[in-house]
Design a protein around this nucleic acid. Sequence first.
DNA 1: GGAGGCTTGTTACAATTCGTTAGATTCCAG
DNA 2: CTGGAATCTAACGAATTGTAACAAGCCTCC
Lengths: 233, 233
Amino acid sequence: MTKPLVTILDDEPEIRNMLSEALEEAGYRTASFARATEFEASLKTSSPEVCLVDLGLPDKDGLALVHRLALESGASIIIISGRAQVQDKITGLELGADDYIIKPFDPSEVVARVRARMRSVKPVGRTSDTAIFSGWTANFETYLLIDDEGAEVPFSHAEGEVLRLFLNNPKRLISRVQMQESLGGAAGESFDRAMDVRISRLRTKLREDPKNPQLIKTIYGAGYIFLGDVVWS
Amino acid sequence: MTKPLVTILDDEPEIRNMLSEALEEAGYRTASFARATEFEASLKTSSPEVCLVDLGLPDKDGLALVHRLALESGASIIIISGRAQVQDKITGLELGADDYIIKPFDPSEVVARVRARMRSVKPVGRTSDTAIFSGWTANFETYLLIDDEGAEVPFSHAEGEVLRLFLNNPKRLISRVQMQESLGGAAGESFDRAMDVRISRLRTKLREDPKNPQLIKTIYGAGYIFLGDVVWS
DNA sequence: GGAGGCTTGTTACAATTCGTTAGATTCCAG
DNA sequence: CTGGAATCTAACGAATTGTAACAAGCCTCC
């Protein structure tokens, strides 16, 4: 089995070294980047399980990067930051980070937290733009679904969020709670029917038979499960 | 929709109050416990999304509890502890906790970290997906029963639970109590007729002759037994 | 500005699931 | 056989989910 990959994004060389050393010691593959642009380029070709991201980057807003990563990739995100204010932590976590570690840190704690993320991590997850599944090709750049005969069906941003969540977590039960939290929204509000409607609309576009959906199954009282073999490319 | 449930296990009343208040404000349901035994009892009847566990408990070893929780429940576990040593954190995370927060803490950070846990999709126990028995193929991914002529009969989640229990324990007596326990319901209530109904519905789908069931036999006064040679694949 | 189109949340009601109830049926001891 | 307990299942209803229809917000193009 190939070792799981952890990417490190930090502009300080010592920190990159310290982290990659500790993580490789612990049995992970690592890839380090000093700049956000290089890091983002790497996501086109590799899909890390966990990303360690320093917020104080020279060339880009770290929080925006975190947000995009959280929505589009299946990777777990751990923020590493010198800012220890509660509000900073909350903002980071709210934007989709899975954990927030304050500098200075002990490398072994980072390893332990990375390992904790690995346990619940989504196995696939790419930041790439197209996914192929069950006779469909979804393109998240053009927001088009293309069937096996080449017919194009456009989908909206909201539908895309749901679709991407499914495509990043195929054949897994996704509870409504997780879905709402992942797609940004407070818990337990009357908002909840919006979720159903999004799914209903997505089902229509995927030409699901309402009585007998093949791709998006409802598990009464539990959530949804996306069947279909997904290949990102 | 039912709000997601967060349980709080801490022996200090002020902390319980502070946390439950903040979490309910954020739209979650909470249940608080001062003792591990009460907490464990509650798990029989409810399944929280996230558990906040204080390690310094009077009546039980917190770390052992965390470990058991991590293995046996599907909940995410966040340790709350006064011990700030790196080694303590590592031990806690290694035993299966998903996060580790040090006292004193800001309630809103706890809320943010709870929300982060809600988002992550926990992998389910990867039991296999299809079983073949007595002319039927049960597919737990698609929730379909397929007979030897290829005809499809969908089954529901509740029916699937019963069916899976039978298929995992063929040719073995399963008492009513065992069945309820493993299907999560509280035992011994007058509610137990639900079990019968589930089985009745399952029998209908398996086209059992009510007078003379071949697959699901009732043992009067004892329970049920599933006959049939099961092959999982 | 405003008309028209698109997106998306909200509402209302329909459909489905599944526990509960209640009577019918079956089982077995006496 | 008979009575009482255990089990079966039709039918009802509460909770959950599906979706059509409406409305609000935001574009773009005149």
